[in-house]
Design a protein around this nucleic acid. Structure first.
Length: 425
RNA sequence: GGAGAGGUGACUGAGUGGUUGAAAGUACCACUCUCGAAAAGUGGCAUACCGGCAACGGUAUCGGGAGUUCGAAUCUCCCCCUCUCCGCCA
């Protein structure tokens, strides 16, 4: 969420930002409610102040008559409070709801646009493969090589689930190990996070656990949901903490499963592994001092570039436009790998600088050497989203005879340094 | 899952209805003393919000929420968390 003080002083800029991002929020109403809230707050506090002073009086009350008088007065104040406090509460509730709907401000260099069509390509790495044969999509290849079983997964769990089998299963582990090792060597702290989190934490990150827009699975009879990303568990990790500035930036590389309902997401571009209900992801997450977050965001982006260059996959880097940023991001870059099944680019990573937007809700602060405190900046970025990375690897490394080469960097994580996946028959 | 115990400021730890935002100690900061350090002494030391140019004033916060009361850290209820024992398991 944004600082209400900032909104008060920058109403027009905030409104313009909402329009740029294509987010509907009633800033005028919010500001009006803010005034109303403060007025009621002052009234309530004045009554409470009176209550407290009566409290002091009664202690020194001489006789029973005097006591009774004070108690009667106190009852009067109580009655007034019983009217005013619910008023304040309901204004506050609406105020907070509106405040949470206001998206983060946007980096001045983020391209202005409405949809992903307006995202701006910054760089392209690698050559799009020219197959001398009719290239297959990963679904066909994986079925043929028995690397995945979608049919039985449908039987057991439903559509958009999958079993990874044989080298498919091993490849997931190799990708995870490859990413974890690289990030560990870069000084990131490896973490394996819970796959479930409290709804309050999920909301703190800026996801909505309930409602028709929700992408989140709730666990019945609990206050828990399956996480859609380790961003949730890692953002919650230091919530309600004050981090000394000398400890920043704190950089984590977190492994979790990710669960998404993907409600209504059907169509040819979501077949196979592209859009699934469950996948494994290695996620980078960082807590930073405000002045260093932009630089760190570039660093996360560069690590993603390094990972996909190492994997030898052609991809491009995209600067996400205002309308496609979502609520919390100040700026966001995606990496899109070339995918046969998409006939073009498909998103494989995403890195966001959320500045203090998430930190304010999660209450994560920086303790400065001079004693002052301010909200930290939180950043996240995909290292490897296994299902999407698998698509990119398998489709780009397929051979004419139907086999699939294993990227050089993954071989050390494959049993026997396996170099190629070929048909068993 | 069952049975207990407990959650108070950076930490230890008093406090069972009214001068308790909170004793005391530790830690920390400043000063005094000292050639310097230690020790000792003196003072300071929470956060958020509201009002105010400021000085400052007000409100809230003793795990969270609701309640009883003129008044709650203290009483009641619900929830969360931690610890111990038992059960169950990977």
């Amino acid at each position: 969420m944004l600082d209400i003080k900032f909104i008060r002083e920058n109403v027009e800029a905030v409104k313009k930002n909402c329009v740029d991002r294509g987010v509907k929020c009633d800033v005028d109403r919010l500001v009006a409610l803010d005034k109303e809230r403060i007025k009621l707050l002052q009234e309530v506090e004045e009554l409470k102040s009176m209550k407290n002073s009566l409290n002091d009086l009664i202690k020194s009350a001489a006789d029973q008559n005097e006591r009774k008088e004070i108690i009667d007065k106190g009852k009067e104040v109580k009655t007034k409070l019983e009217i005013k406090e619910p008023e304040l509460k309901s204004v506050k509730e609406e105020f907070e709801k509106l405040l949470l709907a206001v998206p983060n401000m946007t980096h001045p260099d983020s391209p202005i646009g409405r949809t992903d069509e307006d995202n701006v390509e910054i760089e392209v790495y690698g050559e799009i493969p020219k197959f001398s044969f009719s290239a297959k999509n990963h679904e066909e290849i994986m079925k043929k090589l028995d690397l995945a079983d979608f049919e039985r997964a449908a039987k057991v769990s439903g559509s958009k689930f999958y079993y990874l089998k044989n080298e498919g299963a091993l490849l997931e582990l190799a990708l995870v190990n490859f990413a974890m090792e690289k990030l560990f060597q870069k000084g990131f702290v490896p973490v394996i996070t819970p796959d479930l989190a409290r709804n309050s934490v999920i909301e703190g990150i800026g996801f909505s656990p309930r409602g028709e827009e929700s992408q989140i699975y709730n666990v019945e009879n609990t206050d828990l949901s399956l996480v859609g990303t380790a961003e949730i568990t890692m953002g919650g990790y230091h919530m309600d903490e004050v981090l000394p500035e000398e400890e920043l930036p704190k950089k984590y590389v977190a492994l979790s499963h990710c669960f998404r309902t993907e409600a209504g997401a059907y169509g040819k571009h979501s077949s196979g592994l592209y859009r699934v209900h469950q996948f494994t992801k290695v996620e980078m997450f960082a807590y930073a001092k405000p002045e260093e977050s932009e630089k760190l965001h570039e660093e996360l982006k560069n690590i993603e570039i390094e990972i996909f260059r190492d994997l030898g996959i052609p991809f491009r880097v995209v600067d996400i436009c205002t309308g496609d940023l979502g609520g919390p991001a100040y700026r966001k870059y995606d990496l899109e790998a070339y995918m046969v099944s998409k006939g073009g680019w498909g998103e494989v990573t995403s890195t966001s600088n959320t500045t203090d937007y998430q930190a304010r809700r999660l209450n994560v602060k920086v303790q400065r050497a001079d004693g002052t405190r301010e909200f930290a900046h939180l950043l996240n970025g995909t290292a490897i989203a296994v299902s999407r990375a698998l698509i990119a690897v398998i489709e780009n490394y397929q051979q004419e005879d139907g086999s699939v080469l294993i990227p050089e960097v993954l071989r050390k994580w494959m049993p026997g340094g396996l170099e190629i996946i070929s048909s068993k028959k």
